[in-house]
Computed example of a mutant assay.
Amino acid sequence: MTPTVNEQKSIEAAVFRRLIEHLSVRTDVQNIDLMGHAGFCRNCLSDWYAEAANAMGVTMDKDTAREAIYGMPYDTYKAAYQTPATPEQLALMDESVAKNKAMREGR
Score class of each variant (00 low, 15 high):
Met1Tyr: 13
Met1Val: 07
Pro3Phe: 05
Pro3Trp: 04
Pro3His: 04
Pro3Cys: 04
Pro3Met: 03
Pro3Gly: 05
Asn6Ser: 12
Lys9Trp: 15
Ser10Gly: 12
Ser10Tyr: 09
Ser10Arg: 10
Ile11Met: 13
Glu12Val: 14
Glu12Gly: 14
Glu12Met: 15
Glu12Tyr: 14
Ala13Arg: 15
Ala13Asp: 06
Ala13Lys: 15
Ala14Cys: 07
Ala14Gln: 12
Ala14Met: 11
Val15Cys: 13
Val15Thr: 15
Arg17Phe: 11
Arg17Leu: 10
Arg18Pro: 00
Leu19Val: 14
Leu19Trp: 09
Ile20Ser: 05
Ile20Arg: 04
Glu21Ser: 15
Ser24Val: 02
Ser24Phe: 01
Val25Met: 11
Arg26Asn: 15
Arg26Trp: 04
Asp28Val: 09
Asp28Thr: 01
Asp28Tyr: 13
Val29Gln: 09
Gln30Asp: 01
Gln30Leu: 08
Ile32Leu: 05
Met35Trp: 03
Met35Thr: 06
Met35Pro: 03
Gly36Met: 01
Gly36Leu: 02
His37Lys: 06
Gly39Lys: 03
Phe40Ala: 10
Cys41Met: 01
Asn43Val: 07
Asn43Tyr: 02
Asn43Ala: 12
Cys44Leu: 00
Cys44Val: 11
Leu45Thr: 10
Leu45Val: 13
Ser46Arg: 03
Ser46Asn: 02
Asp47Ser: 00
Asp47Glu: 05
Asp47Cys: 00
Asp47Ile: 08
Trp48Arg: 00
Trp48Ala: 13
Tyr49Trp: 05
Tyr49Glu: 03
Tyr49Pro: 06
Ala50Asp: 02
Ala50Gln: 01
Ala50Met: 04
Glu51Thr: 07
Glu51Asp: 05
Ala53Phe: 06
Ala53Asp: 01
Asn54Cys: 03
Asn54Tyr: 00
Ala55Phe: 04
Ala55Gln: 03
Gly57Lys: 03
Val58Gln: 05
Thr59Ile: 02
Thr59Asp: 07
Thr59Leu: 07
Asp61Phe: 02
Asp63Gly: 03
Asp63Thr: 12
Thr64Phe: 05
Thr64Pro: 08
Ala65Ser: 15
Ala65Arg: 01
Glu67Asp: 10
Ala68Gln: 03
Ile69Val: 15
Tyr70Trp: 14
Tyr70Pro: 12
Tyr70Gln: 09
Tyr70Thr: 08
Gly71Trp: 02
Tyr74Asn: 11
Tyr74His: 13
Thr76Tyr: 06
Thr76Gly: 14
Tyr77Cys: 11
Tyr77Ser: 09
Lys78Glu: 13
Ala80Phe: 14
Ala80Val: 13
Tyr81Phe: 15
Gln82Met: 14
Gln82Cys: 13
Gln82Pro: 07
Thr83Gln: 13
Thr83Gly: 06
Pro84Gln: 05
Ala85Asp: 07
Ala85Phe: 06
Thr86Phe: 13
Pro87Met: 09
Glu88Gly: 08
Leu90Ile: 10
Leu90Trp: 11
Ala91Met: 12
Asp94Ile: 09
Asp94Pro: 08
Asp94Asn: 12
Glu95Ala: 11
Glu95Tyr: 12
Ser96Val: 08
Ser96Cys: 05
Ser96Pro: 07
Val97Ser: 06
Ala98Gly: 12
Ala98Phe: 08
Lys99Gln: 09
Lys99Arg: 12
Lys99Val: 08
Asn100Arg: 10
Lys101Cys: 03
Ala102Trp: 00
Ala102Met: 02
Met103Ile: 11
Arg104Val: 04
Gly106Ala: 04
Gly106Leu: 04
Arg107Val: 01
